[in-house]
């Protein structure tokens, strides 16, 4: 091999090397990256919630309560159960605070009501010491929807939210101001603080 051929060979090898680098870089750029975005959710209680009120002791009406929750999700109704539950403390532990007639029960925090009193109030009776029932409604922004369900699977009595393809919404849970007839009595219901808790949860399926 003469000097000229050696020179030609070097130029060729140099070109191949450069081409190789370029070709390698091009191949990396075309590498496909497959990433699955998992469904996720964020639920927050909003500052517009009204959680404390005072009742008129003579008739049990109060100044108004509401729980406001924001919901953000990239999930669907197939990914989550969006559930609103409520609790009231009884002498035997916590039970659902939702009644059978579109109401929510509030129980005395110190003189906790009995299970019998809770059951009586849930069915619209009059023998329900230290329990007061108020009508309740829940609304949510479009396109989401909310409806009350009795004994809904493992959740029991609850509101069920459907996002219907929406990604953001505001759920408002409103407690009516006047007690359900028969559930408030000056004699039966002691002075003090009555309480119920409302929880909005997204349960992954």
């Amino acid at each position: 091999m003469n000097k000229t051929n050696i020179t030609k060979m070097l130029i060729f090898l140099a070109s191949v090397t450069l081409c190789t680098v370029k070709a390698y870089g091009y191949a990396e750029a075309e590498q496909s990256v497959s990433t699955t975005v998992q469904p996720s959710v964020a639920i927050e209680k909003q500052a517009s919630s009204i959680e404390v009120s005072t009742a008129n002791a003579e008739n049990g009406s109060h100044s108004g309560l509401q729980s406001v929750f924001s919901l953000k999700t990239n999930g669907t109704d197939e990914d989550y159960d969006f559930i609103v539950t409520s609790k009231i403390l009884t002498s035997g532990g916590e039970v659902s605070a939702y009644g059978n007639n579109g109401c929510i029960l509030f129980g005395h925090t110190l003189s906790t009501p009995t299970a019998e009193a809770i059951q009586n109030a849930k069915t619209g009776g009059r023998d329900n010491r230290n329990v007061i029932a108020y009508p309740v409604t829940a609304t949510i922004t479009d396109p989401m929807s909310v409806s009350f369900n009795n004994d809904y699977g493992v959740y029991g009595d609850c509101y069920v939210v459907k996002v219907n393809g929406g990604t953001e919404g505001t759920l408002t849970h409103i407690v009516g101001q006047s007690p359900v007839s028969g559930t408030y009595s000056v004699g039966q219901d002691e002075a003090g603080t009555y309480q119920a808790t409302v929880t909005f949860t997204a349960v992954s399926k």
Binding site: E51, V52, A55, F69, I132, A191, T193, A202, S204
Partner: peptide, 19 residues
Amino acid sequence: VVAGSNTATSTQQITVPKF
């Protein structure tokens, strides 16, 4: 969303004064 919680609770209280 990723930073958020999947649950929130509101504790509601009504004070019934002495009568």
